[in-house]
Design a protein around this nucleic acid. Sequence first.
RNA 1: GCCGCCGUAGCUUAGUUGGUAGAGCACCCGGCUGUUAACCGGGCGGUCGUCGGUUCAAGUCCGACCAGCGGCGCCA
Length: 429
Amino acid sequence: MISILQALSNENIGKSVSVRGWVYRSRSVGKKSFLVIRDSTGIIQAVAEEPNLTPEDFKLASSLTVESSLEVTGTVKEDKRAPGERELLISSLKVYCRNDSFPVAKDKSEDFLLDIRHLWLRSREFTSMLKIRDTVFRSFNDYFYSRGYYQVQGPMMVSTATEGGSTLFKVPFFGQEVNLTQSSQFYLETMIFSLEKVFTVAPSFRAEKSRTWRHLTEYWHAEGEAAWYGNEEMMKEEEGMMDYIISEVTKRNAEDLERAGRDTKKLSSMKSPYQRIPYSKIIDLANEIGLTLKYGDDLGMEEERAVTKRFEKPIFVTDFPVQLKSFYHRPNPENPETVLCHDLLAPEGYGEIIGGGERIWELEVLRRKIRDFGMNEEDYYWYVDLRKYGSIPHSGFGLGLDRLVTWICGLDTIKNAIPFPRTIRRTKP
RNA sequence: GCCGCCGUAGCUUAGUUGGUAGAGCACCCGGCUGUUAACCGGGCGGUCGUCGGUUCAAGUCCGACCAGCGGCGCCA
């Protein structure tokens, strides 16, 4: 038994091989049947005709429906008429499951495809996306291991919020209530005191009633936290990570990117360094483009799209005003109206994929910010404790892996960057 | 949270001023000696999202509900 990719290789021409998989297309002309078979590695056309097969087997082969599963043995032959110019002359076959009509046909709506996502995953487009997604997750881990980070895990059930309080999922917990985590950041921060550099890949949950192309209620959050790092050092680390992920994807998934309609050369050209643009300059730029933004306004969807379309590479937006960012961001000592932070915006209109920066490490500053943001210090006692015992400068980031995949694949919705998207109105399949 | 939109066969859909539903694909049967989302002929397949109302008569008009989609805000 060999893979379809292997069956198509030069050394198998003229040889008898066995492959197994699923019927991708089936057509018959006169006394010949053409079965295009797919497995995880590719597709090959198999030809069934009677001299090579018993009448029973020929009939069986001719009757196979889309996505029926089977195993075939046959001789690999070069033939200009075949897709891929190679095909398999079937000498025997074994059918595992002959289907009724497969629900996925040529006419399909976005809505219907979401209902049958469990079957739509078998499509070539989705297979390619899943392979690219695999590379993104794998290379994220590999990069941080190569940089001396440890992989750690925080809890998914938590009792404190990282961001605002209104977007938490409440879950019953032995007569009490807990929340599903929105970020593992605070837990990563606790672990830098033992491991110094840590990362995690975990789901995060947001109960925001978002209805957009780039929000999920459950998404894959890749986070890193490093002791002694400043904002600039963290940005450099992220540049290294992005370079590595993009080089791995373009190396391993060239064909998959092509199927997704993505220009591999264009992706490869987006090497770091990325521009660092202060928030105030972005406001100026937005106004040059014709948008009306004043200092203190947050960047909306329209602004982000317009701005990122002007760049060929991702950009960092830095130095946001204090009030636009969460309480834990460290104010810039040279300009306390702004914080030492960075958002990484993907080009081509895709927008924010990373948010990060330097964390407050001075106890009194953190206490004041917690008060200023109207929060209760007692709820964050353990987070505050970190600033009491051996506190150090440190920085971190959170990356939306599904957003990164959306951009790398050039998709128009984040729902197609994850096998089973969870949105405000969809929990099935 | 705000704004907009859709629901007719397994899928994609047509359906006129209200008169009891038509097609393409899929599937099944038959034909075709090389198909490329094959083609040709036939067949199967519909409580028109649900409930209620108006009417002699509702897919069509009205109301409520259910389900889902798109955009904004928020964020990764």
